[in-house]
Design a protein around this nucleic acid. Sequence first.
DNA 1: CGTACCTTTGACTCGTGTCAACAATGGTGG
DNA 2: CCACCATTGTTGACACGAGTCAAAGGTACG
Lengths: 247, 247
Amino acid sequence: MTSTPAKNNATCPHDKRVSCGNCRLNTICLPITFHVDDIDRLNDIIQRGRPLQKGEYLYRANDTFQSVFAIRSGAVKALTLSDSGSEQITGFYLPGEVVGMDGIADNRYTNSVIALETSSVCEIPFSRMEDLSLQIPSLQRHFFQLLSREITQDQHIIALLSKSSAETRIAALLLSISSRNSRRQLSATQFHLPMSRTDMGNFLGLTIETVSRIFSRLQKQGVLAVDKKEITILDLPALTTLSTENH
Amino acid sequence: MTSTPAKNNATCPHDKRVSCGNCRLNTICLPITFHVDDIDRLNDIIQRGRPLQKGEYLYRANDTFQSVFAIRSGAVKALTLSDSGSEQITGFYLPGEVVGMDGIADNRYTNSVIALETSSVCEIPFSRMEDLSLQIPSLQRHFFQLLSREITQDQHIIALLSKSSAETRIAALLLSISSRNSRRQLSATQFHLPMSRTDMGNFLGLTIETVSRIFSRLQKQGVLAVDKKEITILDLPALTTLSTENH
DNA sequence: CGTACCTTTGACTCGTGTCAACAATGGTGG
DNA sequence: CCACCATTGTTGACACGAGTCAAAGGTACG
């Protein structure tokens, strides 16, 4: 609500005066085959609010589903409340990625989504997107692919959790973040972890102590340099080997 | 290819002379809001081949994606080959459920699907389904929901694998099968497991020995009666409690 | 500058995996 | 129809990886 009517195209990633046409991430979250005026039509239905602060909810489990959200900057976590009441993180989402698709099935979200750091998102009202999809076949195709990609990623995680040791899980998570960073033209070997050790452990099915011990061990072995949440991958091949070992 | 041109509406679930209009499962795999002639249009694009025998592949990982498949009878398992080469089962699919949606993202399947017993499937060519979806909004909506439901189910499994003990995992799997059976008007407390102990263990991230021991223990406790693959749930509340305990 | 939270490290415990032997099952061919 | 063999499931003894409990060190924020 602060009125700063300056017209300069700010480079701040949280800036809300951005359109899909000039968004750095549009090759990630939009299909490449889009025509310019189709991009404009999509852009018209997208809403951009103020950035979320760390810890703020984007939406909560059981909220009525209305939109999916593309992360433009920052990072968020999605989590379910298990039947027993405890939180289970089901995924981390970085810029260019889309959350909220769990809500389509029953018209209410099954996850809650919380910002891990200051984050801005593009809200895509789903019913308007559906209408548009009927007119733009490549948009329909794109959303089918987005949903499908979420399925394959979740199944990757299932495979990871089902079979592998603590070390393998952590290696795989680090490599996942690494490759998603490099897709955004960021360093694949040096980056900031947006989540806490607790969140990593929760997601990977490990205790925080185990996460901490593995980090220490990988550091002693010269595979990683860890400084708080700043990670440097020193031996990428070694980490890759670790991530593919099962048990 | 055997020509038995009899016109009687056979009750054999593997019979291929079935249309969506008269399929017992259509309330599960089709949206309720369908008009009769829309059902006919969908039915026209669906292909029904000969049943799969136990152990046969429906498709293999890396095959070019062309269709999704509704299970009409029997049961199948989906599995990925992990980087290290070992198989990881990512799900079991029962009649009325749809497999193959992992292939949409990159136009090739990431899973292989194998019949657990003699099974018949309805093949839905995806590009024709997409075309039809542009004309029938409720069909587009239905497929978004199907994909979304797969996501929420996979995330359930992530939560299960991430947090819970061997006993909880097995209880949850049994209850999942139980509820899916009752959705098909079958008994919720007495049923045949389509998969081997090995498959259960693989899926749940447990060894076959552990699966076996848990079954024995639950039987001693009077929660289950187990006779080979025939399961009788004797104490549903107890099993439910077990399935919601985390660790 | 103090308080609250997060992370690290150590000692010990426990659940599940591993290894091994054996039983039961089911399919095949004589 | 039965005997054989391969496959699958069961049970036991033991080992080990990760959880638990506890304490101390760091870090961030008011």
